[in-house]
Amino acid sequence: MQYSQKVLDHFMKPHNVGKLDNPSVEATEGSPACGDQVSIYLKINDKTKVIEDVKFQSYGCASNIATGSIITDMAMGKKLDEAKKITWKEAAEALDGLPPVKMHCSVLAVDTLRKAIKKYEIDHKLREQDKFDKNMIAEELKKIIYPGAGEDIVTLKMVKYIGFEDGKAIIDIDIPKFDKYRENVADEVREHLSHFDEIKEVEVNL
């Protein structure tokens, strides 16, 4: 498995790394326990809604740093409506591809950017806080990449059942017993769903 030259370039000399002094908004996704965390800082023009400056910090591997670098390049100078449409696949393509096992880094970087934009929009009353429902669980599961294929577990039809009742989420995942990513996928499901205050307990059935 190898990284593209572009990934290596962005890893060794990342663009926009650091913090902004007075950001309009900042957001962090991931966690040190998972081995990758990204923080993004945006300076947004309140009138034009253009991202005038952006910086990131990263705790993570080479692709985590490279995706943080490329996503901030892509967001710089864009209007919020355009920036939030950037997808993880576009970010990966801009790096001349990522190994399937590293595709989750691209999802994390895009997710952090979107979280920052959403936070700004809520703070500036441009949108309402999302109301929790079962569909949000499915949307969250789309952020979990099966490392063997570099595609999300919903698109791959690995999610067989999503249940939610009395604060308990029940997720059935179809994954072979000897799949080396089995535990990783289960941990990711638990980690992602722990972000919802409404979910008190997660049961993952493999």
Binding site: G35, G60, K102, P147, K180, Y181, E183, N184, D187
Partner: peptide
């Protein structure tokens, strides 16, 4: 010993 460099993405 990082998960990122391991076969199963586990620490």
């Amino acid at each position: 010993g990082s998960a990122c460099a391991s076969q199963g993405l586990k620490p």
